[in-house]
Design a protein around this nucleic acid. Structure first.
Lengths: 165, 165
DNA sequence: GGCCATTGTGTTATATTATAACGTAACTGA
DNA sequence: TCAGTTACGTTATAATATAACACAATGGCC
């Protein structure tokens, strides 16, 4: 029943985080299975780190987490970037261009246009369900074949405005 | 009379480039004068480089141009970044987040939401006149105070589709 | 199972993009 | 002309990302 209402996403809202994480990980597994793709343990680790954080993380933050988890290993950047590339190509995570950061996707697999509200105070990010903006229609009218869109709105969320207030 | 029609911008269209450049530089001058800001020679140089290119350029590309123009000097990155910061803060140029690049603004001073169509074949960028997308209204409904928005659509422009086709 | 082709991982080195920190120069207004 | 401010120049370094190559694991096929 929440389906059709305005879909602000779970950032900016309280939710059962552990449950949300497990849910999304399980969706990721299913999706990879359906597509005959390998959600290897490295890829899963990276996804889990992003799911746990539920906020944007830089590649090197993720790297640090990985190295904390595997103190023996000394993992290097390309490993992280490769896992991120895989996860992005399957729509399991998004890149936040205006922050050089990555965040887990809240609607894995939906090929919708992801749109983000980014609070520059608390650093939280809300992913909005992307109905195509008018812009995409216009692009189409111009004969421009869209293949990826980046929509990132920066500002201060309601919560932080109150606190500052 | 072109005012009210669809405003695809000058990239993706033929136009008198020299005239366009001079026009925009002159607007920049007026704008700075009106705001009591200093369009110093460094800042003007950087703006001119971007106007001349009319395509997105990386900071280090601009740096290379500057150094080509002043072979004596050996200009360093902070100089470029500072000029770019100034020009961005006055709305004379935009940053293309998804390319780590900068491009001159086609509507200097208009505080409209800039939106870009980026062709990944010819690398040209069209700036669309930004009427507020529905998303901004939605942000507002959520009590989110927007202060900057990034809208970048990547794909293949009509021209390049023909050539490939 | 043994083999090959493909995909993924690990490692080193390096490229690219951006900023911190500090001193000097130029302009602005009294 | 002086003080305050803004801009510029310089050095060093931080933060982000990729190239190139070797090795390992997996999957399909016989």
């Amino acid at each position: 029943m929440a389906r059709k209402t305005k879909s602000v996403d779970i950032a900016f809202r309280k939710h059962d985080h552990g449950r949300c994480q497990r849910q999304l990980l399980s969706e990721a597994r299913q999706l990879c299975e359906a597509r005959k793709l390998r959600l290897t343990s490295r890829r899963r680790q990276v996804l889990e780190i992003l799911l746990a954080s539920h906020q944007p993380m830089g590649a090197y933050d993720i790297l640090a987490e990985l190295n904390r988890a595997n103190p023996a290993a000394r993992i290097a950047p390309p490993i992280v970037y490769r896992a991120l590339d895989f996860l992005m190509s399957e729509g399991l995570i998004h890149r936040i261009e205006s922050r050089n950061a990555f965040i887990s996707c809240v609607h894995p697999g939906h090929q919708c246009t992801a749109q983000f509200l980014i609070c520059r105070d608390c650093e939280q990010v809300a992913e909005l369900e992307g109905r195509d903006p008018a812009l995409l229609v216009e692009a189409d009218n111009l004969g421009f074949a869209v293949d990826h869109s980046v929509v990132e709105i920066t500002g201060i969320c309601a919560q932080c405005q109150k606190h500052a207030g």
